[in-house]
Design a protein around this nucleic acid. Structure first.
Lengths: 338, 338
DNA sequence: CTTATCGTCGAAATCGTTTTCGTTAATCAA
DNA sequence: TTGATTAACGAAAACGATTTCGACGATAAG
């Protein structure tokens, strides 16, 4: 009961392997009649050509590799969903690897994917990644590469991103418009572009509305965890009681802050408003429900695959491909915490 | 700059392809000297044999397939982590597919993996799966199969599970010991074994402590969502005000219930206690923090891979393999909601 | 000196597909 | 009738690694 081969079909229909192969791929030098017969039989016995054998000739593995910084992560899981659905539609298998936010591991995973001869790599850069040599190597090896969410301004490749700066700006402006004047920012780590951009959006909003920017109101979350948010909330309450709103780089720190305020019986949003970023499922479930910026992960994943596929088709035709940057729309989700 | 082949090494060292291949695999009929030379050179140029070509001869793809019911799911993400880490250590690549809790899709994904010639399949059965023909087919095709978490009592294959009945029993007993007498159960769907077992554990605990079991205190969550928990919490408050504790089949419904109670200013755990199941990260972040049963996903994933690997080794030796069932330990996590 | 043994190595077949390049027979134009 | 064209099919050579089976020279045994 093992898998059938072209040979099996050939002997069954008294044809050559060549003809069977060509019939299945609609070559013009096979009669319509034989094509019909072959296709019907192939369908009947549920034949699929052996992917590994095919690779050997075509050098196409029909596999793509995806590297994300964290596996257990609402946003990235959504991106994966988008990638996997789009990939399946085009007959691609997906190999998922995680860099665990580690630069070293990220390099290793890139290497594993190249050794596996994937047809393309989609990845989101780890927070700790500070140089892009391993990434540029991918392009040098002539493998299509698409970055998403965490991208690099240095690398010449397609990317699917959101406009972090604008999104952050809108979020902070919403806080301002609801009367907040002393807005703190729980920012992300220093390397990632999106963490930088969200910080810049925060500053821009303050600037536009002539609110003071104070260094000591910016707290850096290195791991973007709820624990960090919890700790900084305590700091804020203890040392900066004048703060009346928090804009966090992500939902997790925001939720950690909410947890601390709840424990201290600080009323949200009356005494202090909290704004997250990403719209994780959990943000609708905490009390009070968290206002945040919706980041459409699934769409981003699908677009990323499409960019890869587009590039691959052009390469096959021998045409040049100019890297594209796709910006996906975000939206403000106002709930009870602001 | 494409990938090197055995041939490249052979010509570089003035040896035959055969000798190079054998040297790398430590065949006894290659001199220690040549082995050293070949290995050194292979390392220098960072050579890895082409996996697809190797497959053609050995029929081993060095890939395993994993099917989970949901991608965006804290517990399953943890399982994946365990699987992927263990797989990497043995040089295996992992192809992850999701059944989206759909029986039809599950069948399709099994088919995709078999066509891909994976060396083994690890899977968790979808809630809607009601027959196991597609699963039994895997074993019939002689592909090692390991089930985890959602398993089937009908299929003859290895499984990694927890003792759902005992775990549920302990959780409910904890509610009873803290003085609760009218305990409701938000149960899971009807097919999955673990949903059944948790329900049985609930009943057993009531029985042991001579508390009445009431049908109308059991509510079925078909999709195991927070929305269902939210809705049932309203039902409970409106129609069964005597209920003083809820044991939910999973964390999500429990959190939905907490949300509703918070909105209604029902104090937890004073007026009503809430117990979840699984220990998702979120359960420590809601207010009040949710008591729950810890389900060690990563360990389960690792064990699942190990079972697969064990079976594969025995099969290669031509020995028989008797399916094993591994039970992983759970633990009660008491927080503020009980 | 002949035969057997051993230690090293390679030629070649194989896995299943793809694709180039013939080959054959039938058809057409002249 | 002859030569050229076309339609339909197959033989065979890749792809890259693995593995069986010899081959060869050198040594040991008789």
């Amino acid at each position: 009961m093992k898998n059938l081969t072209l040979k099996d079909i050939a002997t069954a229909l008294d044809l050559s392997i060549t003809t069977v192969s060509k019939a299945l791929k609609d070559y013009p030098d096979v009669s319509t009649n034989t094509k019909k017969k072959v296709k019907a039989y192939a369908k009947e016995v549920n034949f699929t050509p052996n992917a590994y054998a095919a690779y050997l000739r075509t050098q196409e593995s029909k596999m793509i590799g995806v590297i994300i910084p964290q596996l257990n992560h609402y946003f990235f899981s959504n991106v994966l969903k988008g990638i996997m659905n789009a990939a399946e539609e085009e007959g691609y298998m997906v190999i998922i690897l995680s860099s665990e936010e580690s630069y070293e591991l990220e390099k290793k995973q890139v290497d594993r994917l190249m050794k596996q001869n994937v047809d393309g790599i989609l990845m989101s850069i780890a927070d700790s990644t500070h140089d892009t040599e391993h990434i540029d190597n991918i392009s040098k090896q002539n493998i299509p590469l698409v970055l998403f969410d965490k991208y690099s301004k240095l690398s010449e490749c397609s990317s699917v991103i959101i406009n972090d700066q604008n999104a952050a700006f809108t979020a902070v402006e919403h806080l301002i418009k609801s009367g907040r004047k002393n807005i703190a920012h729980l920012r992300g780590p220093l390397f990632p572009q999106n963490s930088i951009d969200r910080f810049l959006g925060y500053r821009k909003a303050l600037e536009k509305h002539q609110l003071p920017y104070k260094k000591e109101w910016v707290f850096t979350c290195h791991d973007i965890t709820s624990d960090e948010g919890y700790t900084y909330a305590k700091d804020i309450l203890d040392k900066h009681p004048e703060i009346d709103a928090i804009f966090a780089v992500a939902d997790m720190p925001a939720i950690g802050a909410i947890k601390y305020f709840n424990e201290q019986n600080i009323s949200i949003p009356e005494q202090i408003a909290v704004m997250g970023f990403s719209n994780w499922k959990i943000s609708g479930l905490v009390t009070p429900a968290l206002s945040t910026v919706n980041q459409p992960g699934e769409t981003m994943g699908r677009k990323a695959f499409e960019l890869f596929y587009e590039e691959l088709q052009l390469r096959k035709k021998g045409e040049k491909f100019a890297p594209k940057i796709i910006e996906v729309e975000t939206s403000l989700v106002v709930r009870d915490s602001t």
